[in-house]
């Protein structure tokens, strides 16, 4: 499957880039993430518990970064294994563009596959679950980078769940999810594990 979209962040491009490469930031943004380890400058290993409705499964995933072009973007690819639940794999091209001082547009272009039991019995919920996961990720990520820009490093984890206190600007609200931000979106770039969580219920 292929999907693409973009997202406007209230943060400087360098800060977004740093966050995209920071395992701690990623860990707090990926829903259900238990651990994320940096194996090298370009490799991460993540464990996340996916929970959508009645489904609850633990996924382990490896993620690799390539085509690194700081702070303009990178390509991220990876694969997550969910045991009996199946697997997800794929990649995303992520580009960062400075649209105004302190404002960054993140554009992503994802190509991914879900397989095994998930694909076989969960067809109807793939889109919705993936979108939900990516929404959560973006909400968290926007808060994380926005918080850094406004409040300084280290505050992100304590960021409130309420809408971020950022002023509207010409490019849209900080947390506005652009249309077609379906599927894993950039959540894939962090760990494709995020994307494969969906209900396979009856």
């Amino acid at each position: 499957m292929k999907m693409n979209g973009s997202y406007d962040l209230n943060a400087a491009r360098e800060d977004v880039w740093a966050a995209l490469n920071d395992p701690d930031v990623l860990k707090q943004c990926i829903p259900g993430c238990e651990s994320i380890e940096k194996l090298s400058d370009t490799e991460f290993e993540a464990v996340a518990v996916a929970k959508v409705g009645p489904v609850k499964a633990k996924f382990k995933g490896k993620v690799e970064l390539s085509d690194l072009d700081p702070p303009n973007g990178y390509t991220i690819s990876g694969e997550g294994q969910g045991g009996a639940a199946g697997f997800a794999k794929g990649g995303a091209k992520v580009a960062l563009e400075e649209t105004a001082p302190g404002l960054t547009r993140l554009t992503y272009d994802v190509d991914a596959t879900v397989g095994g039991k998930l694909a076989q019995i969960g067809q109807r919920l793939v889109d919705g679950a993936a979108k939900k996961m990516s929404d959560q990720f973006f909400k968290n990520f926007a808060q994380a980078v926005g918080g850094e820009a406004d409040n300084g490093a280290g505050e992100a984890e304590a960021a409130p769940q309420a809408p971020a206190q950022t002023p509207p600007h010409p490019l849209g609200e900080n947390q506005k999810i652009v249309k077609q931000l379906s599927y894993l979106g950039v959540a894939a770039m962090v760990a494709l594990v995020v994307w494969m969580f969906f209900n396979g219920g009856p």
């Binding site: 409705g53 009645p54 489904v55 609850k56 499964a57 045991g83 009996a84 639940a85 039991k117 019995i121 209900n199 396979g200 219920g201 009856p202």
Partner: peptide, 10 residues
Amino acid sequence: TLLPTMKQRL
């Protein structure tokens, strides 16, 4: 919903 999900080991 829950029991079929459990039977599928999900």
